[in-house]
Amino acid sequence: MSGPVIARVDETLAVTSLRSKNLLGIADLAPEEISLILDTAEAMKEIGSRPIKKVPALRGKTVVNLFYEPSTRTRTSFEIAEKRLSADTLNIASVSSSVVKGETLADTALNIEAMQPDMIVLRHPSSGACHLLSRVCRSAIINAGDGMHEHPTQALLDAFTIRERKKQLAGLKVAIVGDLLHSRVLRSNIHLLTKMGADVWVCGPPTLIPTDIARFGVHATSAIDEAVADADVVMLLRIQLERMEGAFFPSLREYFNVFGMTEARLRRAKPDAIIMHPGPMNRGVEIASEVADGPYSVILDQVANGVAVRMAVLYLLAGGAEHETAT
């Protein structure tokens, strides 16, 4: 298949689809596919405001949430999304399972697959784990975060949230500040925002900026004022406290002083700039509390939108369970 399928015979039967049977990363999506997911998410969002927050679309489908990393937010979000579509969900957390007994990812997956799930949502600490799974399993694979590589549904819900407030992504200046080197959210967001025509600025200490970042089509700087100047969107990434041990920066206090998003710094952005954070936040490290709780923060909207976006992804991929296998 060479592109998204669009057949418009009768408007009520307009169809489009995703090319791949899996969602492994934003890197593999075309801009039209991203738009399709966001448009579908809009329709899905409405379901959350009904008295009965359920539609039968994925009735009888089984979705396995295989989480090798602890996660409350993402896993809950996926679970709610799956249930709203009437799918049967199974949660497997690595701590309580055969993984502890030394079973490899591939073997765990094959064992699960023998029970014929339709989709597997995988979160794993190793980059590329979802690619490995997609070669081993026939089920559709959704990447819920693999190592430092990608977290595609996070970028999609970020884009959805931006679109809600700003109407479109093209032409916006988006500043992303934080641990760029280790962040899968960053990579996914860079792919998505550049594909959709946004002007992306990434900012952090040089120790946390990946090599060759300019090849990703973004501006990179360690000067926060430059990054935030006239920004429409300011996105803060979590600083993992363990990074201090790798000598990436001397202390959290210093990080906050140089890169923390305070109200003063924020004044350089556009007056209606929105503040985003994938969570969980380290208040007083990457973001000041007044900013996190301020009027332009859309952090809680991001969480709410996560369910709608994940419903859209599940819906679009579930029908593709019969597609030819794409790698």
Partner: peptide
Amino acid sequence: LYRDDLMRHTVGPQPLVRR
């Protein structure tokens, strides 16, 4: 999302969902 022929197409994409 309430159609009885969802997910039954052996070939072919999902119908577009609207609000």
